[in-house]
């Protein structure tokens, strides 16, 4: 084992897609770290690049530039063969349990597939492990020879989780693992993921658009907007003291199922700007209630304002340097 500070260290990661209209900046200069045994929640609206970030880290999308270090080891540029070995340690759970399972394979075949591919286990070992995994994720043994279409969404997602756990990974990208599920089932899956983390020391990158879920589940939260990281902080800090105007608006938009605690909504005007050939301005500027001239001139850097709390906003950084500025104070001013 090498020396490393963080289990995962992503720096200046970029992923551009060439489309007819130009270059689509899906992930644009994103840097963050995740420590062992922790969960980083990544939130943002659809199209903000959160899934692409997750996939670029696993090199399911080849990053355009930047570096991803796993256990201190650079993985961008590794050969296919080396990458394949590493994949055992880095897994992904997909969003749609209806589309991510091969309909022609039985449950046991689906869960066994990663072990077969790794080529390190004997047939009876695999069988035993499939049995164990099904127990771990709470699938009854009678489902061993059923096909995915016979099962409901919650059970299918459990299969996806069992498959991701098959090779004893250290790090799992959970790409909206509960979005397609009913709330009662969603809670079952979230609790399962939590228990697995406690028992196996797993590290998660938890991608979701549901802020209530991420607040419940993550240690740190990163907010993405149009391919960029705009704020990152410990969950509690982010919810109590959001600094970026976008984060604040996003938090205020969550419908709260509690009659006594309704939040005051801060509207975001207009639609998202195009990520194709974006100008070098703050990308939130057009929708931002606090936009000033400086915001249209350059893109703000992500800076650490208090320990663990990173923000990319000209206004916040400037006011922070001068003293006490906060988003909500500005809103009332």
């Amino acid at each position: 084992m090498g020396d490393y500070e963080h289990l995962l260290e992503v720096s200046h990661l970029k992923k551009y897609f060439n489309v007819r209209a130009g270059s689509l900046h899906a992930v644009d200069d994103v840097s963050f770290t995740i420590d062992k045994g922790k969960t980083l929640g990544v939130v943002g609206e659809s199209g903000c690049g959160k899934s692409t970030t997750g996939r670029a880290i696993l090199r399911l999308h080849e990053p355009t530039s930047g570096s991803v270090k796993f256990e201190g080891r650079e993985i961008v540029g590794l050969s296919k063969r080396e990458m394949r070995k590493l994949r055992a340690e880095m897994q992904i759970i997909f969003q749609d349990p209806y589309a991510s399972l091969d309909p022609r394979n039985t449950i046991s075949q689906i869960i066994a597939e990663p072990m077969k591919l790794s080529g390190t286990m004997k047939k009876d070992e695999i069988e035993q492990k499939v049995h164990d995994l099904m127990e771990t994720v709470g699938l009854a043994e009678r489902f061993v020879n059923t096909y995915p279409h016979e099962l409901d969404g919650g059970r299918r997602q459990r299969i996806g989780i069992a498959r991701a756990l098959a090779l004893n990974p250290k790090f799992i990208v959970c790409d909206e693992p509960v979005s397609a599920l009913d709330v009662s089932i969603q809670a079952q899956i979230l609790n399962l993921l939590g228990e697995l983390q406690d028992n196996m020391g797993l590290t998660y990158m938890f991608i979701t658009h549901d802020l209530a879920v991420v607040n419940h589940f993550a240690d740190d939260i990163a907010v993405m907007y149009l391919g960029q990281l705009v704020e990152k902080a410990p969950s509690e800090e982010l919810f109590d003291n959001p600094l970026h105007p976008y984060t604040e608006a996003l938090l205020s938009a969550i419908p709260v199922p509690d009659l006594d605690n309704q939040t005051k909504r801060i509207p975001i005007k207009g639609e998202i700007t195009s990520p194709i050939n974006p100008p070098d301005t703050c990308r939130f500027a057009k929708r931002c209630p606090y936009c000033s001239g400086q915001c249209m001139e350059s893109s703000p850097e992500l800076v650490e304002l208090s320990p663990g709390h990173f923000v990319a906003c000209h206004k916040v950084a400037e006011e922070h340097a001068g003293g006490t500025w906060k988003v909500d104070e500005a809103a009332t001013a």
Partner: peptide, 30 residues
């Protein structure tokens, strides 16, 4: 329904929801 919940299923739905005002509360799924 929200304040004087009567049905166990309704209660279960509320308990399944992550509460953004109390992040440490454990989810109690149905």
């Amino acid at each position: 329904v929200f304040k004087h919940t009567l049905h166990p299923y309704t209660e279960g739905l509320f308990n399944s929801l992550p509460n953004i005002h109390n992040r440490t509360a454990k989810l109690k799924p149905i």
